[in-house]
Amino acid sequence: MSAVLAATLAACEGPDPAASSFALPPTASPAPDSTGDEPGTSTGTTGTSEPVPEDSSTSSTGEPSTTLPLQDLGMPDLGDLHPVGCKGKIDFLFVISRYGLMESKQARLIEAFPHFIETIESKFADFDYHIMVVDGDETWGSQVCNADCSPTGCPYPEYPCDAVASISTCDTTMGAGTVFPAGKAASNVDCGIVGGRRYITRDQPNPVDTFACLAQVGLTGDDRLGEAVTAAMAPEINDVSGCNGGFLRDDALLMITFIANTTDQFSAGKPKEWAETITAAKHGDANSVVMFSIQEPECNPWDRVCDLVKYYFPYHHIADEDDYRPAFEVATDLVEEACSAFIPQ
């Protein structure tokens, strides 16, 4: 074959596809199959894939690269295909039962919270947080005390009777952030969130003490956590004029933590529907949510919150220990991993 013919054939074949610098962005792994975890164990999975290699103008040997620019291949330049990451911007939602016998679990959460926040903060140079607590029902305080706040009618000496007349619509809205826990074993004070918001930001003085006030939601309410988290994700409640206006941010990772001692038999809807609402609030990206639950790790057939956490979100952890700090450490590792793969919507 002549040299001219060989050169002509080579030109017709075009560049070797393997030499192209174009690569697809990483894809998220599917949510774990319900048969993939053994009952009775703490679980934690991730939804990340292998990173995309960066384009380079030189090879690993220092020689000029023969990789052609995307424009020379007739393809548009899509820019950097690596995930942007959450850059330390995280929205934390704590969904806490107000059912009876929750006093010790609320106390352990409050005790573990400073360690949790310090661990998260150490992972991000610019930690920009929203922290909101919602409880498991739409009532405020104790219905018994609200009806008769006299010493004979209300059995809780510390109950804030003088606040009953000033309760707002948001105080009695399912999924709205808690700002004034009231009832048996509750804080029974206005927790003093600045700016008129129902969630803590980094502008809040003494955020650890403020969270301790918010998380002590008391024992005179319900445990409808599935219904509460769904309501907290609704567009109208997060609208600028809604009760939780501004809490959910499109460019922030979302971490949801459940604290309960029951299996939530009374929430409206099903785990699949709750998961769809949460995912829709994050523009269809289940990998932008980290789920963490303090409850029995095995998902009994009737444990719907456990089903929600374990089977619909790739980043999740479930544990039930006397000390919540080790479980929170696992959760913070998941947050760091999910943040690195996060793509703002």
Results as ranks from 00 to 15, higher is better:
58 T>I: 15
91 D>W: 02
106 Q>H: 01
83 P>Y: 03
132 M>S: 14
63 E>H: 05
64 P>H: 01
108 R>P: 01
118 E>C: 08
119 T>Y: 15
147 A>I: 06
93 L>V: 10
81 L>N: 12
143 Q>E: 09
88 G>T: 08
57 S>C: 14
62 G>P: 08
70 L>K: 08
114 P>E: 01
137 D>C: 04
61 T>P: 11
126 D>M: 07
117 I>M: 13
103 E>P: 06
99 Y>C: 05
79 G>I: 01
103 E>S: 12
77 D>I: 04
106 Q>F: 00
82 H>C: 07
131 I>N: 01
121 E>N: 11
119 T>A: 15
115 H>L: 07
146 N>R: 10
97 S>R: 02
127 F>C: 04
144 V>I: 06
91 D>H: 01
134 V>W: 05
45 T>G: 09
78 L>F: 13
85 G>F: 00
82 H>L: 04
91 D>V: 04
61 T>L: 14
113 F>N: 08
69 P>K: 12
90 I>D: 07
88 G>A: 08
98 R>H: 04
96 I>N: 02
132 M>Y: 03
123 K>E: 13
50 E>Y: 09
119 T>F: 11
140 W>N: 08
92 F>I: 01
53 P>R: 12
113 F>M: 13
128 D>K: 11
75 M>Y: 14
78 L>D: 10
48 T>H: 14
137 D>S: 03
106 Q>E: 05
89 K>T: 10
59 S>D: 15
76 P>R: 02
49 S>G: 15
75 M>I: 14
121 E>Q: 09
94 F>Y: 07
80 D>I: 00
144 V>T: 13
58 T>L: 15
75 M>P: 03
111 E>W: 01
93 L>P: 00
124 F>N: 11
59 S>H: 13
99 Y>G: 13
48 T>Y: 13
131 I>E: 03
56 S>A: 04
110 I>Q: 10
89 K>E: 11
106 Q>C: 01
134 V>M: 06
93 L>F: 04
68 L>Y: 09
146 N>Y: 10
131 I>C: 00
84 V>K: 10
50 E>N: 06
115 H>R: 07
118 E>S: 12
87 K>F: 02
73 L>A: 01
73 L>I: 02
137 D>I: 05
55 D>N: 13
76 P>N: 06
59 S>N: 15
108 R>T: 12
147 A>Q: 05
57 S>G: 15
95 V>L: 00
130 H>V: 04
63 E>W: 08
